[in-house]
């Protein structure tokens, strides 16, 4: 399906860019007039996916994180977050709540669980050594205007 609107950006995997990434996506989506709750959900889910690129994918290195956002028919937002980092061996296991490979760094193992409960759909594709792509989908409830 052809998107009604689309944007793309990349940035370096520095932790200081985590706030930039979620704000940029939320600013783009603002045109759909989402509720504060919906915007907060999207910011939180994007923050999780981007943090995973910084913390896990490019551990001890700096690489590029790519974000593509599409707005499609029916106010459905599709957000793709991609890295070219270490990848994930077992995606199903990684997505289980509380699973983490970095417990000593106070990771809760809840990133994927948060993405799942804060969006309508989460899709993860990964190949070890090549990288990971996370696709988040969320429908924005359009508020009705009178006049």
């Amino acid at each position: 399906m052809k998107p009604l609107n689309e944007m793309e950006l990349w940035f370096e995997s520095r932790s200081s860019n985590e706030g930039f990434a979620r704000s940029a996506v939320s600013a783009f989506i603002a045109q759909l007039d989402p509720t504060i709750g919906e915007l907060n959900d999207i910011k939180t889910a994007v923050s999780e996916a981007v943090t995973n690129c910084v913390v896990h994918a490019y551990r001890n290195t700096i690489g590029r994180i790519y974000i593509n956002v599409k707005i499609t028919e029916g106010a459905v937002v599709i957000i793709k977050i991609r890295d070219k980092g270490i990848g994930i061996e077992n995606v199903a296991q990684a997505m289980e709540p509380l699973f983490t490979t970095a417990p000593s760094e106070e990771r809760a193992g809840l990133g994927f669980a948060v993405m799942q409960s804060f969006t309508d759909n989460v899709n993860v594709r990964s190949s070890p050594g090549k990288g990971t792509t996370v696709i988040l989908k969320k429908r924005i409830s359009r508020r009705v205007y009178n006049g």
Partner: peptide, 13 residues
Amino acid sequence: SFMDSSGIGLIMG
């Protein structure tokens, strides 16, 4: 104003 799972880790720790 905002918190993600890193905040959960902070509280649990």
